[in-house]
Amino acid sequence: MVLIRNIHKSFGNLEVLKGVSLHIQKGEIVTIVGESGAGKSTLLQIIGTLDKPSTPEKYHSIIEIDHLPITQLRDKELSIFRNQNIGFIFQFHQLLPEFTALENVMLPGMIAGKPKVELHKKATELLKYLSLAHRLEHKPGALSGGEQQRVAVARALMNDPKVILADEPSGNLDSKNAEDLHQLFYKLRQEFNQTFIIVTHNTHLAEMADRSLTMKDGTVISS
């Protein structure tokens, strides 16, 4: 599902990623752990096409998602691919405060140009599946932290992505909501064969994963 090979990333003279290679299978839940500054979030952003590796021609870098070499796509093609194939879950939810839960979930589909009636139906189904049927018309400010994160999960699922990337998804939740979110990831994998790559400092979540990769100083040192 996700193949990356010899990925480097530098910011000026600071080399953040130093030849990272990974292969993640469809339906696998993989966590990436390590100290702050190890390069975890940078790697996740590159996999998610939000950033690009440094001089891929020099290092013969490869990034493939579902066998498509995304390093060869132009910016507009990347934007379309990202919208249709990658779901994102962030620590601070990134919900638009002026939109309802339902509208926030519909956004990826609206960007993709799908019919509004279809989007309304799909977003409603997702929120009901995540036990938020009673919160459809509530704005983020009226939702608890756990509810906001479940809305963010529904938004990530809206376009049926091939892979979901999560950056500290439970880092802003209390222990009960964090555990509920972790169990939700496994439920989604079981029912939809969803693939997850999760950057986390949560030891329990890391231990639950199919594989946990440890990064240090811009490289993967163990799995």
Rank of each mutant, 00 (worst) to 15 (best):
M1F: 07
I4Y: 01
R5E: 10
H8N: 07
G12F: 02
G12M: 04
V16T: 15
V16R: 03
K18D: 03
V20F: 00
L22H: 05
I29R: 01
I32A: 10
E35N: 08
S36A: 10
S36V: 00
A38M: 11
K40G: 03
S41T: 15
T42D: 05
I46S: 01
T49N: 02
L50S: 14
E57G: 08
K58P: 00
I62Y: 01
I62D: 11
E64F: 01
E64R: 14
L68D: 07
I70C: 05
K76P: 01
I80W: 05
G87P: 00
I89D: 14
F90L: 12
E98S: 11
F99V: 13
F99M: 11
A101I: 03
N104C: 09
N104W: 03
V105P: 00
P108N: 15
M110F: 00
G113K: 14
K114A: 08
P115A: 14
K121H: 12
A123S: 11
L130V: 01
A133P: 03
A133W: 02
A133Q: 14
G145P: 09
Q148C: 15
R150Y: 03
V151K: 05
A152F: 00
V153P: 00
V153Y: 00
R155S: 03
L157H: 02
N159I: 15
D160T: 09
E168D: 12
L173C: 08
L173M: 12
A178L: 08
L184Q: 11
E191H: 09
F192H: 13
F192A: 06
Q194Y: 04
T195E: 09
T195H: 05
I198S: 14
I198A: 12
V199Y: 00
T203A: 03
A206E: 15
A206G: 15
M208H: 04
A209S: 10
D210K: 07
L213M: 14
T214P: 04
K216S: 11
D217P: 05
T219L: 07
I221H: 00
S222P: 07
S222M: 09
